[in-house]
């Protein structure tokens, strides 16, 4: 299965186009439902980066979900079933890299690796690709 990967994080300019694409997919103008976040690195003089689901093989967020709202996704990451979610926030706290975000209704926003945001990344920081087994990300080291 294809998934969202980082091609070259050093190219990120922090525009957040990905973040807006994610919520737009749901008919929102804003970022409430976005499962990706663009941040500066302690101030923009040090550059920028994006944070999103790393498609773990053993996702801690799934482990702590009491209602099976989050289940493992084939090929890594999670599938989210909102109906089962009770907005406990366990998943948000469990994610080691802080890639699950709280929506205004208290429920999580998490990347489902649909690849929509890639179309709007102006500098090819992101890509939507098949990832071979055992290779979590394809971070290009500068």
């Amino acid at each position: 299965m294809k998934r969202l990967i980082i091609k070259d994080i050093e190219k990120c300019v922090g525009c957040g186009m990905c973040m807006y694409a994610c919520s737009r997919r749901k008919g929102e103008a804003g970022i409430d439902s976005s499962g990706i976040l663009a941040v500066s690195l302690s101030g923009f003089e040090r550059g920028a980066t994006v944070i999103f689901c790393n498609a773990c093989k053993e996702p801690p967020c799934v482990q702590v979900c009491p209602t099976n709202a989050l289940r493992p996704r084939k090929g890594g990451g999670v599938v989210y079933n909102e109906k089962n979610c009770i907005a406990c926030g366990n998943c948000i706290n469990a994610c080691t890299i802080g890639a699950i975000f709280r929506r205004s209704n208290g429920k999580p926003a998490v990347c489902i690796h649909c690849g929509y945001c890639v179309n709007y990344c102006p500098h090819n920081v992101l890509a939507f690709e098949e990832v071979t087994a055992g290779k979590a990300t394809e971070v290009k080291v500068c």
Binding site: I31, D32, F101, S104
Partner: peptide, 8 residues
Amino acid sequence: NGRGSRKV
């Protein structure tokens, strides 16, 4: 700090 959306 803002993290909301508005519906179109």
